[in-house]
Amino acid sequence: MLRQLGPFIVASVPIIILLLIVLVLIFATGFANLGSSFWGSDWNPPKAWGIAVFVVGSFVTAIPALFLAMAIGLGLAIASTVYLPRWATRILDPFVDLLAGIPSVVYGIWGYLLVAPYFGKVLNPWVYAHFSFIPGFGGRAPISDGLGLPISIFLLTLMALPITTLLIRDSLRSLPRELWESGLGMGATRWEATRRIAIPYGSRGILSAGFLGFGRAFGETVAVAMVLNVMAAYPVNFYSATGTMASQMFLNLDAAFGSSSWLAALSYMALVLLAISLAVNLIGRRLVARVVSYEVAGL
């Protein structure tokens, strides 16, 4: 153990940074007691510090994005591992990886200036006109600027998609060739062999894709800050705005300057966000052995 001490100190850089983050945030709260309002729904500085709106807002944006990214990711992964010829996947797969490389602020400017007006003028009114009978899709009419939940979910889906696709692809590819062939040898179609053998075989990896994709969407900051029209309110319906923890923290730090309770409230929020993100990541990474392609892709 003593012989390992020197290398361990050098190697523990990630542990030190992680501890540093936690300790700095804890001290940044000044151990302030924000009273009973902290877990409430009313965020009204400097009177009320209810962060529940932002916790809920983070889930409300991240969960639909996760479902979309999982569904599309599963489809893309099946298409490229089962159905498409090698040469086609060589051309197509890098596009998905490229989605991971686009900086979120660039997604944001594209979303804010080009996609959001389209959502506001075309897509949201159309959904409102035809699907307002579904609970959550009726009520207050969508605003024409298009900022709000739908565009946020759209951008978060694109940002989570490379993670889910890559991990699901890896899970499906991990199926031993003999197992695949014996499925087909039983008279299964490719789809049946995928659904009944490859997906159950790779289920841990697919579940892990879900956790890590969720983590990505849950912590996303700048793009959401640009297109969600962040506010401290629960969403009233599908088209409305809300706030996420990450975007609120990002936009609100300037305003909090000089107010110790305000900074404390934001620091507590940072700790909540960090705790959820780390938990989700820990579970996601525990589900699968080391995924080399992941590390190489920087995910």
Binding site: P176, E178, G183, L184, R196, Y201
Partner: peptide, 21 residues
Amino acid sequence: NPVMVRRRIGMVFQRPTVFPT
């Protein structure tokens, strides 16, 4: 269709290929 052929002509492989169920 090969699917119909394989239903009627079964196959057992070199290594056991049980499915994870």
